[in-house]
Amino acid sequence: MEPQLEVKQQTELKRKTRLSKDRAMAVAFLAPSFILILIFIYGFIGWTGWVSVSNWNTLVPDFSFAGLKNYIYLFGDYRFQADLRNTVFFTILFIGLVIILGLGLSILIDQKLKGESIFRNIFLFPMALSFVVTGVVWQWLLNPSTGYNKFLQVFNIQPKWYTDTKILAGFEWGQIEFGLPVAIFAVVIAAVWQMTGFSLAMYLAGLRGIPEELREAARIDGASEFQIYRKVILPILMPITVSVVIIMAHISLKIFDLIYAMTGSGANFVTDVPGVYMFETTFRGNYYANGAAIAIIMLLLVAVFIVPYLISSRRGDQ
């Protein structure tokens, strides 16, 4: 064993000296950003985690250990239960619609139609706005006494949009009525309006990357146009769908600005989300530990989506 080890060490050493210069450069380049990220992202995530198990629920910091008290409080809290319900339905509706509309529009645009770039720009444009602007605009468009309802008067329909407090298919669950809050549709419409352009662009790029030969081959095999999309195009676009889901999921789970600008918490918290609750309880109520606990829960929710993606993409790399 001994000599073998020595030989190994020697070759190692040789490689090291050869690489040492490159390596030093690489370390030197990476170190500043690595250190900054370590402190300002992971350091503060750790700090937030620590605050979330402390007793700091007044203006005066109190870092005594509270165990899971803040988490237990939150999961028993009417507002937080409503937030989780809203987040679930918002995320499902938002991602679903963004994918369906983005894919549909990109397929239509891909049909080599005239003035394609005009359409592309029209659909992409909302993405250039900030969520706050979108929120303010849609707040008025979907306001029950102004906006679309003025037009809908002709048909005698007057939806209450985001002021509707009805819960569809609701049943008692914990403290809240679990079901689909009607008001969340209004927020979904605004969010979808803004983000569809993104998935459209992704899918369009994907479609453009599919060689014509593949379609030709499928046609020769006698596939119908619909079958080509179902059996050939969509499977090829799968990685894009995954990316869109991941990106949209982390937007929708962390959404704050759109809802804060558009509806606020809503009557009976029908449009409230963890982000808004976190802001209000921390900076209005001075419940810092509760706010930190909400932040950690949001982080874990996003991690549910991101971590499997990271693992699978790492496997893909290897």
Partner: peptide, 10 residues
């Protein structure tokens, strides 16, 4: 205190 007010508002 603001903490109480936040809960009352809720």
């Amino acid at each position: 205190a603001e903490g109480f007010l936040t809960k009352v508002n809720q």
